[in-house]
């Protein structure tokens, strides 16, 4: 039985670099270094593991983003994904999560899927709601925020660690899952994998291909609007003392002065 797995990934500004906003109050994705979102590496990893455990499975990696987002696809292909789909259209620029989910859902319908795998959140927007929105739009079950996941007999099951409880969940395919950073360390691409990735197919799609009206997405089509952006003043360093046997007492004196104790 074939199993069509599609992993949704995002190309994000490097969190260790200088992240900032462009003049139109969108995330600056051009003047900064970008990469495959670290949290999406866990999604790629789990998709590959599920494919390894299921005969005839195929892993497609899907992204929505500008030209440079192909770097994220390349990374996922070099880890072992079979093929890639890149939705790239200037009119998508500035979309909010509602718009992005509409584009991704249309691309998933066009590509075909049995299992959609996402990371737990992007490292730039950090909303963590896209997988739920995809399930809503596609009309399939969501089994999200899983720290363990497996697929057998047309059913996906896994462990969801919430604040109040740990739940075991399962859903018949087709379904959307998201996996956490506890799901298992992502593999590094091998040299062979990097070379092979160069020959793997990358399909490009635009809004016309997906039958989406440009006015429904992008900055103008967003259902939210940024009013004001303020750089937080850097925290100013307070007093730093070196412990010479009295460090704990000095710290206690500070906390008492601040009325914490």
């Amino acid at each position: 039985m074939s199993l069509r797995i599609v992993v949704c990934v995002k190309y994000v500004p490097d969190a260790t670099g200088d992240r900032r906003f462009a003049d139109d109050a969108t995330t600056d994705r051009e003047g900064v270094d970008g990469l495959l979102s670290e949290l999406d590496e866990y999604g790629v990893e789990q998709a590959l593991r599920i494919a390894e455990a299921n005969d005839g499975a195929e892993v497609t990696v899907l992204t929505v983003g500008p030209d440079d987002a192909k770097d994220a696809l390349r990374k996922a292909l070099s880890m072992g994904a079979d093929k890639a789909v890149h939705v790239n259209d200037d009119d998508i620029h500035g979309s909010d999560v509602i718009g992005t989910s509409a584009v991704l859902a249309a691309a998933l319908e066009k590509t075909g899927y049995d299992l959609v795998v996402c990371g737990m959140a992007s490292t730039d927007g950090t909303m963590g709601v896209l997988p739920a929105l995809l399930a809503e739009r596609l009309g399939v079950a969501q089994a999200t925020l899983l720290s363990e996941v497996s697929v057998a007999g047309g059913v996906v099951s896994g462990r969801r660690d919430g604040d109040a409880a740990t739940e075991l969940v399962e859903a018949a395919l087709p379904a959307v899952v998201s996996v956490t950073d506890q799901s298992g360390e992502a593999r590094y691409p091998s040299f062979k994998g990097i070379m092979a990735a160069k020959k793997k197919p990358v399909q490009s799609l635009d809004l016309d291909d997906l039958g989406i009206d440009a006015g429904a997405v992008g900055l103008a089509g967003a259902w939210t609007k940024v009013a004001e952006i303020t750089a937080r003043p850097a925290r100013t360093q307070g007093q730093v003392v070196t412990d010479e046997g009295e460090g704990g007492k000095q710290l206690a004196a500070y906390l008492a002065e601040q009325k914490f104790i």
Binding site: R235, E246, Q250
Partner: peptide, 21 residues
């Protein structure tokens, strides 16, 4: 760089002393 108050030292000395205080 972020602290209002910092102690450069071994946490296994500083923390128990603070706890006692």
């Amino acid at each position: 760089e972020l602290v209002d108050y910092g102690v450069v030292g071994d946490l296994f000395n500083v923390l128990p002393q603070l706890t006692d205080q």
